[in-house]
Design a protein around this nucleic acid. Structure first.
Length: 331
DNA sequence: CTAGCCCTCCGCCAGA
DNA sequence: CATCTGGCGGAGGGCT
């Protein structure tokens, strides 16, 4: 299916906010499915509706309220229904909400539960006999209350086809990008994720969290080759080398790379190298030449070019900014 | 910054 | 017929 960007159909998404919903996950949904992207993509990958059982809905802690949102009837026609979360898992979900969710599922909509949204999906009975991801703090309680649901520990999200759940706040982004990837291909998912991360700077700090235990569903057939390549970045690696390791012809390997990573082989390799270089810049005082050599970027000049393109700064500036960041954070 | 080389990438086509 | 593979050539881009 990840046949690239050939499908250009707009996917209709509805997000179901209830009293006390968490603004963070709601924001993630708005950013991934609600942002206009015609300018960069030439089409709108998603259209987003905000739906609630009530006219006006206060977000968590009364931080702000949403007005003029659609009613539950507006769920009709949505290809995907997102249930962000709810403030209190002890209070049973509203019958009207549960009924609306069941109705949507029965007519074939894809249901997405973010964080405690899984409780709502479980109450509606949609998770019985299925696997689900739950926030680690609530996993025990969830398992106790919904024994027919198989809780997957230590995963960011679970994609069970028509019912999808994510484990917690930030995992909503991982899950959202996963859905984009499935709906519109890896290339567009990469574009969206780039937009989300904007500041190349935060990259260094964030990678540690984002480096993921996924993919759960999609069988990444070239994962071993990627790992092998990562372990020998210092040495020259041609596409032919990668192809030999994967047991494919170079042409076929290139196609699989695009399908699974959104990048051509050498491009992926360059990205892996610059990422390794950034880690060394962040965590060591090694000279730039040494880092360049160690990451397979050749000369220091070459590393400079890559870093400028990737982060927009020189190695020294990158180091200084990263160190400054850590001092601020640590103090 | 430029020159020059080589590899990469991608469309196209043919075969399984 | 549909899907996947892989060889070819040329334009383009990266590296020294």
């Amino acid at each position: 299916m990840p046949r690239g960007s050939s499908q250009r159909a707009t996917v209709e998404v509805a997000v179901l906010v209830d009293e006390g919903s968490n603004p963070f996950e709601f924001g993630c949904v708005c950013e991934i499915f609600g942002a206009r992207r015609t300018a960069e993509l030439g089409f709108e990958p998603y259209s987003l509706r905000v739906v609630s059982p009530q006219r006006r809905v206060a977000m968590r802690d009364g931080l702000f309220s949403l007005g003029a949102v659609g009613g539950l009837a507006d769920l009709d026609g949505a290809h995907t229904v997102v249930v962000p979360n709810r403030p209190d898992v002890d209070t049973p979900g509203r019958p009207a909400v549960l009924a609306a969710i069941r109705r949507a599922h029965e007519r074939g909509a894809r249901l997405v539960g973010l964080c405690t949204g899984a409780f709502t999906l479980a109450e509606a009975g949609l998770l019985d006999g299925r696997a689900a991801a739950v926030h680690w703090q609530l996993a025990d309680e969830f398992a106790r209350r919904f024994p027919r649901v198989r809780v997957e520990p230590d995963v960011l999200f679970v994609d069970d086809g028509d019912v999808v759940t994510s484990a917690g706040s930030a995992a909503a982004l991982d899950l959202g990008l996963h859905l984009v990837r499935g709906d519109h291909g890896a290339e567009i998912a990469n574009l969206v994720s780039r937009r989300l991360v904007f500041a190349a700077f935060r990259d260094g700090g964030q990678r540690q969290f984002v480096e993921r235990p996924v993919p759960p569903a999609g069988q990444a057939s070239l994962a071993p080759t990627l790992a092998w390549a990562r372990s020998r970045l210092a040495r020259p690696l041609t596409v032919a080398d990668l192809a030999r390791h994967a047991g494919w012809a170079p042409r076929t390997l290139a196609r699989h790379f695009v399908a699974e990573t959104g990048m051509a082989p050498q491009r992926w390799l360059a990205a892996a190298r610059i990422r390794a270089a950034r880690r060394l810049l962040e965590g060591t005082d090694l000279p730039v030449e040494v880092i360049a050599a160690r990451c397979g970027l050749g000369t220091a000049a070459n590393l400079r070019v890559h870093l400028a393109r990737d982060a927009g700064v020189t190695p020294t500036a990158y180091r200084a900014a990263y160190r400054g960041h850590r001092l601020e954070a640590g103090s």
